[in-house]
Nucleic acid binder design. Sequence first.
DNA 1: CAGGATCCGGGGCGATACTG
DNA 2: CAGTATCGCCCCGGATCCTG
Lengths: 127, 127
Amino acid sequence: MKKKAIINNSPACQTKMQAIRDAMSVLSGKWKFHILGTLIKGSKLGFMDLMREVDGIGSKMLSKELQDLEMNHLISRTVMNTKPVTVEYSITEYGKTLSPLIDALANWGIEYRQSVHGKEASGFCRS
Amino acid sequence: MKKKAIINNSPACQTKMQAIRDAMSVLSGKWKFHILGTLIKGSKLGFMDLMREVDGIGSKMLSKELQDLEMNHLISRTVMNTKPVTVEYSITEYGKTLSPLIDALANWGIEYRQSVHGKEASGFCRS
DNA sequence: CAGGATCCGGGGCGATACTG
DNA sequence: CAGTATCGCCCCGGATCCTG
């Protein structure tokens, strides 16, 4: 056997790598998970509600991320005909698919913070 | 009840949001999941092995991401004293903690691609 | 209230070349 | 082989102001 035993370039593996790329293309960005997480636990939120819940986000980024998520059918946007226009955002059935993933992420984050043992857990940085 | 019913600012929720932030601070970046996924299924990989497995990455980014991951104790780096220097990267026990998360991400990515029904699944983009 | 317009900096990320 | 050095693009993302 001359073959250098490339670890694993089986179709299944290639597919998995591709899958990660696909998921990342939809979920990348600083706020996607926060927004989705917020909408998953509390449906029917307005723009301002989200601004309050997703701590630190600005209106521009929120607007942008919401558009991305809507384009990928993870959330739905409904304009209400109220006095000053109001909009309701909610998670779609398809968006709920991400619930386990987000929970897993959050749970890992919790354990991570504990593993760093109280110290600031904002991740170590180069230099 | 005057309170506007802020959806959920319970401690548990704040914690979850913080957890997501923590996790993101460690896992953000274009290649982290790919590298981790690769190292989880095939331990003891060299730099070149990773270059081959993680399709599309350049040596600079690979080096950078590897440093990040090592700093957070998700992978371990071992310099072998061979002829031309060789390095072995492997996932740590703690890094394996991410296995379910990565699987969940990959699986979701697969379903996502199918849901887009064959069409290119690189995510929709604004204009 | 919901968001667009504009300005702007930093850095994520890539390509190429070079070293021990 | 395993990176580092250098260069530079682009776009993420924040601040501020403005509109219907």
